[in-house]
Write a protein that binds this DNA or RNA. Sequence first.
DNA 1: TAGCATATGTCAATCGTTTATCACAAAAAA
DNA 2: TTTTTTGTGATAAACGATTGACATATGCTA
Lengths: 332, 332
Amino acid sequence: MRPKLTDVAAKAGVSATTVSRVINNYGYLSKTTKEKVFRAMKDLNYQPNSLARSLHGKKTQLIGVIFPSITNPFFAELVEQIENKLFNRGFKIILCNSADNKEKERDYLRMLIANQVDGIIAGAHNLGIEEYNKVGLPIISFDRSLSDKIPIVSSDNLKGTFLATQELYQAGSRHIYFLGNPHQIGNPTDLRLQGYQKAINELKLTAHIHSVNFSESPNLKSLSIKKLLTQHHADGIVCTDDLTAILVLQAARQLKIKIPAELKVIGFDGTAFIQEYHPELSTIVQPIHDIAALLVNLLLKRIEYPEQPLEQMQYILPIKLLRSQSTFNLAE
Amino acid sequence: MRPKLTDVAAKAGVSATTVSRVINNYGYLSKTTKEKVFRAMKDLNYQPNSLARSLHGKKTQLIGVIFPSITNPFFAELVEQIENKLFNRGFKIILCNSADNKEKERDYLRMLIANQVDGIIAGAHNLGIEEYNKVGLPIISFDRSLSDKIPIVSSDNLKGTFLATQELYQAGSRHIYFLGNPHQIGNPTDLRLQGYQKAINELKLTAHIHSVNFSESPNLKSLSIKKLLTQHHADGIVCTDDLTAILVLQAARQLKIKIPAELKVIGFDGTAFIQEYHPELSTIVQPIHDIAALLVNLLLKRIEYPEQPLEQMQYILPIKLLRSQSTFNLAE
DNA sequence: TAGCATATGTCAATCGTTTATCACAAAAAA
DNA sequence: TTTTTTGTGATAAACGATTGACATATGCTA
């Protein structure tokens, strides 16, 4: 059996109260008793039972982190950053992959409440507003509007695709397509589409919107992309995310379409992974570190000072254009 | 304040004991009271406080999952599978990224114990055996030997690189290099190196081992790879992992080295990600689903029947060769 | 009608820790 | 010397749920 507080007390030859005082560092304590207690704790390899502590009202130091999947490099990097920053502040995360599954998300929400997590960072939303309002815990959302009471952090999606579209134009494209998943209100994809449309309007071009279902297998996506490349005469493609852009580059290579001469492609996300393993891709870089830092800071502020309202309900972080060979030919 | 058991009891007009009986489903219960209680629970949006339950001796249904990073697609997919399978069995995971950091891993281990997790799945090891032995919890390890008391699940690393090397040979390579990180005992990389050496010996070739430090930035890795490609006359490269292989393909493209005609490359891991976004790469596929299933099954068995010893301490799962254009030219 | 299964309630102990209160010393400051 | 500060202990009540012991009441059956 794991040692408990009273075992430490016995070993150190002091009272349980004193041990607790040492652990929580309050009241008057002499150096010698402190040392005795620490020694006993170390000798017994004692860890205070955090269940018991939390039950008494202390925080659990647990944060629920809900994202659709960590298989997508963007989410993987974001979650990793969040984990890191929370760890440095003494928190652990319960990872919840919602897998775009309503039931699973609901179950996880229930479990998180049952486990008395101190707060939630959510980057998925399949549930209705009411369910999130009922939670009664500090929540910060990434890129999704869950309810009007939950602050949202996101990148400047609108400006992102706006810049992306402009970039293609400046590089010479005139038949610029938008490649994303089907329309979905409240989803960031929506803003990305709007950014594209805004740029297209300003440039006085015509919009071409091509939908690929995100949940489809990459094979099917590739098929759809090849159809686009062969049946339409696009010379520029704005993709909602880098992975889709990679598929476009792949398809172009197979179809012997020259990049960027005949077709310019730009992605969205700009993860470290893409920058390292696909440096040829131009993309809109989301500030993953800043996003993670802001999510964590806001959440912890909410946890520490629940009364104090946040200054804003929406935080839009700046994006950056990363120009590379898929839109810009070094040789030219 | 969150409603508690007594609130439910009051609302349902029954005693606290009865509510507990309903929740834990024991003793005699009439249909009507059950319904009354369920209704009250739903009305109040009640969730039993799992801290209190666990404190009483129930399991926490929490599993610690320790991996170096989820930024690597292989770990991301493995963790996602583990999460999935555990979720289906009613468990949640605390995600611990050790970041190859001794202190962090130690801290996490402490925290996991303090949080009374029911068990641990570990795919990282920076700590000494004693520290893992002291944990006193069911642990299953992926691909690392933590202590002689902790069962290990891994792929057949030896056979993997053995097959990989043979594949290159059969495809025509005679100057086959091994590209991996520096020697590290107990690490799976070690077995992968051995598999290569075994094949090289059997084929009566000479071994060429090229080390790239894993922790190095991809840029530096690329530099080192380009040096290898220009200063040595390799016509085949066995890489310890797919990401390294991708860098090799990238470097080859830049150096105008024709793949597979002049250089054949094979990777290791074979994640869904690589298969989808780099289908040109030949690789050794680890059975991620099976690994996850086995890790979870073994762990849960340990948790449910702590007395019953496991039949084996080491489980080696079969790998598969996935042949693609980086070793095999369709046109030929 | 005794005996039993069914259905519910009361009461209290327990899990491991926190924390407030009271008590008592010894040491330091007035 | 008196007062205050410092250091420690004993005791008990929480935190929220579980569970065993025991009481009680109904209906059913042998």
